[in-house]
Design a protein around this nucleic acid. Structure first.
Length: 570
RNA sequence: CGGGGCGUAGCGCAGCCUGGUUAGCGCGCCUGCCUUGGGAGCAGGAGGUCGUAGGUUCGAAUCCUACCGCCCCGACCA
């Protein structure tokens, strides 16, 4: 491609709308332009990067035995009503009526449509297993789209669905996808981790998320420095604490703590540590209040709470809600004597002689012990794991890092097939529901994540497998006939070798060309200018580390081709 | 939806508080000269319903009201 002909509008300045680095660089590098909130037009350069990801995904999906198809984007409400998700999915599902007044929606995901297809077309165990996938634009009416392609409303996704005769076979399908995903992200040249994840509203028995490691990630993940344990913070199980300390239970006493509401204030006043105190937090769970007990220096992990209670939604109550449901002002709340449901973190059960609120303004209780002084409805792992906790799997040291979720694999089971009566006949002639799995990759998000992970002050630093062009040739003096001829010849021979090349043949000064080449992040920059006129050599500069070498123009195509091949297979 | 911010040329911004000629600046764009190894210089030029609608006023980018849009934080999130 010739730079003089491609629509590649780069920006010198940072667009005001972009906050995170990938968003900023994608706008500056002429990747895309915003049409409206969360919806972008992909320009040629950006689309080329997207196609690179798509291609890798396709190859690996096909290799893993999945078949590509294309499902409709507009879907009838009927299907969603069958699974009950028409109500449950919420406002993220964009609903509308067609001209005949039929309820319809834009597909945010395709479990219903694929299950409908399979129940119509597959009736025998002989035709199983099957794994079908598509790469398609999804629409989710996100509450708050942000960070450009990281959380858009319209985005490209690869979604695959597997159908199996049994749980065991479904696990095999799941495993295959898990392996395929590892290959995909490795081939993309990304640093990532597969982590245990919460399966969320989609349901199912277990799931893994694939996280690209980057500081700007929206999720926090926990990885073990010792073994291969890795989990989403929401899911990371805290090791059950050892048996209670062999300390005698002391007599409970009420103490005055005037105006001391915050944990730190109470601790300072009573001369204790936050670890000696149990805080009582009121959550509103699907409309009902629940008191949650955790050690004073711990945080409640809301997803764990949600799962324990089996509710769709939990939110910390505000001061008014706390008072309305317990009759106690915040800061003095405790488990002894309140009437709402109480649940406690595992740690609370082994603590001895701790401090809690007295359910009376300006008073706390000392030397409180669970079961002796109050009872709870459930004891469970409810707190956020910390880097000081041991690895749940091997007891080793943990580390927290930020990650961007680019893929998610789920074992769904029969949730959808049962709801939609999608059944096949097994070898005994019995009707059974398909055992399903589903597997997503956010294609456009992969591109954004790749940039989050690979950039510097000057712009994008594309991993070779994802770069829209592998090389850029800078013609540094258009008026010099020899230089221009050499640039053209080189452009031709690189293309003949299959090297994807952009020829900067614009009538611009060298400085501008250098800046743009850096911004675009093309892995290899070939400069033809003064050094060529003088010594007949061209310079090759590697974007990643700035390593530059002079090469005779005749040798360049072969050398470059080998370099690129090495980076792509490695 | 709650909180905060912003809407003035393609992009980034000033002007608004304290209303008053022809609405500015930098970048980009066009023409010419000149220059050519890290976003040059000079000269000339094009480009604006000041988000929209209404109001106040002799007069509104500027003051008031409503609406629309966008961004950030939160809730939310295969």
């Amino acid at each position: 491609m010739r730079y003089s002909q491609i629509l590649l509008p780069t920006l010198k300045e940072n667009p005001a709308e972009a906050e995170v680095v990938s968003h900023r660089l994608m706008l500056r590098a002429g990747f895309m332009r915003k049409l409206t909130s969360g919806i972008y037009t992909y320009l040629p350069f950006g689309l080329a990067a997207i196609r690179k990801v798509e291609r890798i995904v396709r190859e690996e999906m096909n290799r893993a035995g999945a078949q590509e198809l294309a499902l409709p984007m507009v879907q009838p409400a009927d299907l969603w009503i069958e699974t009950g998700r028409y109500e449950k999915y919420g406002p993220e599902l964009l609903r509308f009526k067609d001209r005949h007044n039929r309820e319809s929606c834009l597909g945010p995901t395709h479990e219903e449509v694929i299950t409908d297809l399979v129940r119509r077309e597959i009736h025998s165990y002989r035709d199983l297993p099957v794994n079908l996938y598509q790469i398609q634009t999804k629409f989710r009416d996100e509450i708050r789209p942000r960070f450009g392609l990281m959380r858009g409303r319209e985005f490209l996704m690869k979604d695959a669905y597997s159908f199996d005769v049994s749980d065991e076979m479904a696990e095999v399908s799941y495993r295959k996808m898990y392996e395929a995903y590892k290959r995909i992200f490795t081939r993309c040249g990304l640093e990532f981790r597969a982590v245990e994840a919460d399966s969320g509203t989609i349901g199912g028995s277990f799931s893994h998320e694939f996280m690209v490691l980057a500081k700007t990630g929206e999720d926090t993940i926990v990885v073990c420095k010792n073994c291969d344990y890795a989990a989403n913070m929401e899911k990371a199980a805290v090791r059950p604490p050892s048996a209670p300390a062999a300390v005698d239970m002391l007599e409970m006493t009420k103490v005055e703590t005037p105006g001391k509401r915050k944990v730190e204030a109470v601790c300072e006043f009573l001369n204790i540590e936050p670890a000696d105190l149990v805080k009582t937090l009121v959550y509103i769970a699907d409309g009902l209040p629940v008191a949650v007990l955790v050690r004073g220096d711990r945080d409640v992990q809301e997803v764990k709470l949600k799962n324990l209670l089996g509710v769709a939604d939990v939110a910390l109550a505000d001061d008014k809600q706390v008072f309305d449901t317990t009759g106690v002002p915040t800061g003095y709340l405790g488990p002894r004597g309140i009437t709402i449901k109480i649940v406690a973190d595992l740690e609370v059960a082994v603590m001895r002689n701790f401090v809690v609120g007295a359910n009376e303004k300006n008073f706390h209780l000392k030397n409180v012990n669970m079961d002796r002084d109050f009872t709870v409805e459930a004891v469970a792992d409810l707190r956020q794991i910390t880097p000081d906790d041991p690895c749940p799997s091997c007891n080793g040291r943990l580390e927290l890092t930020e990650g961007i979720e680019v893929g998610h694999v789920f074992k769904l089971g029969t949730k959808y097939s049962e709801a939609m009566q999608a059944v096949f006949q097994d070898s005994d002639g019995l009707e059974k529901p398909f055992v399903m799995g589903c597997y997503g990759i956010g294609i456009t998000r992969v591109v954004a994540a790749a940039i989050e992970q690979n950039h510097d002050q000057n712009g994008i630093v594309f991993p070779v497998p994802l770069a829209p062009f592998q090389a850029i040739i800078l013609n540094l003096d258009l008026k010099d006939a020899a230089i221009s001829r050499a640039a053209e010849d080189l452009y031709q021979s690189l293309q003949d070798l299959g090297v994807e090349t952009l020829l900067d043949d614009r009538d611009e000064r060298p400085g501008s060309k250098f800046k743009d080449a850096d911004l675009l992040g093309i892995p290899f920059r070939i400069m033809i200018g003064k050094r060529f006129s003088k010594d007949g050599v061209v310079e090759v500069r590697r974007r990643r580390d700035g390593f530059t070498e002079e090469v005779s123009i005749d040798h360049l195509p072969g050398i470059l081709q080998a370099r690129i091949a090495a980076e792509i297979s490695g």
